[in-house]
Every structure is written in structure tokens, then in C-alpha cells.
Amino acid sequence: MTQQTESALTPEVKAMIGVSGEIVESWGVVDLEYSRRFTQAVMDPDPMYWDEEYAKQSKYGELTTPPIMVSYMSSRVPPGEPDVVTQAFEDNPMSDGIGDVHKHGELPPVPTNLVRVLNAGNELELYRYPSIGDKIKFQNRYSDIRERVGRDGKPFLIITRETTYWNQGDEVLCITRASTIRR
């Protein structure tokens, strides 16, 4: 006789689909220095990022920046807030360097006792290159939660968190989706 496995997709978990965080403004603006550091680190020497004359004559008419560069601005800690690195090691001397720090705009946790987290994949949708001087806003949302059954017969969840990024004119720059497996 096979044992009935309890579903991980409980009503409480299902209720999280569509839950959004607050709209948060990233600290600072998109600037040339951040663009320089980012593009050198990703190894993209595109003159659209630094040659104003070339950029002016392009379709875009101005310098652009890498499309998902703004997604990393969302984890910036504004000056004046507690030092998260020091705090992480105060909490745990063997911290992984990230710690358990509350991030602005973070979503409430999905109420599940499945604790192991694995990266399941990413999606990117691009609509506009961020411009120098842009002020960035973002919002997280649980866009999907699905249940699957592993080879061991145990259910697990695939949780997709969608983040939308806007500029100061409320134009969508990009949408990212990060899916994680919870076992």
C-alpha cells in the first residue's frame, strides 16, 4: 500500500502567490562611475556606456547602461544604517558574509517547513536601458509557486520571485524572475 504524501502546496503557501512587497527606491542614482565599475567587472567594453559622441549618434541618443545593472542597486545599504557586514559576524563568527539581514522591499517568507534552498533558474525581460541619472524603484512579488514531486517521492516547491524595476518616470526598465527550489 502506498502512503499518501502530504502536499507542500498548502492553502497558506498558495495564498502567497501574488503577494507583493513595498515599492522601494534604491539608494543613489545610476551614475557613470557605477557603470564603469560594473561594465569592467562584467567585461563589456561597449562604447555606448562611455563614449558620449558615439552614443549621441546611436538609436538611443545618449549613453546607456547595462540593462540589469540596476538589479544590483536594490541591495545597496543606505549610509547611516547599521553596518550589515559587522552585524553578520557579530551574529555568527562563521557567517557566510551575507548574514540574516533584512533587505528593503523583501517579501514575507513562504510558510513552509521545507528549508533547503536551491537555485532553480532566472528569467530576464528587458524593455529600456537605464540612463545616467535615473532614480530606480523596484518591487518584489511572488509570481508563481508550484509543487513538484522528487525522485524520492517527496514533494518540493518551486518559488518564483519577480522583481520589476522602474525609472523615475515610472517606465519599466526590466523584469527579473528568480526561481528557487525548496526541499
Binding site: 560594473f38 562584467v42 563589456d44 561597449d46 546611436s58 538609436k59 547595462p66 540593462p67 540589469i68 545593472m69 537555485n119 532553480a120 533558474g121 532566472n122 528569467e123 530576464l124 525581460e125 528587458l126
Partner: peptide, 24 residues
Amino acid sequence: QSVVPQFLKDWVAPTGWPWKARFE
């Protein structure tokens, strides 16, 4: 993840658009 838009952008430049990508 950040190499992906660069790779697509360069191929469709100067006037095409690197619309969407998904990967594991």
C-alpha cells in the same frame, strides 16, 4: 546572468533588441 544580456545585445546591435532570456 549579466553576461547574457551583453551577449545578446552585441549580436542584435546597433538597432535590434535583446528582449528575453531564461536559464538555469
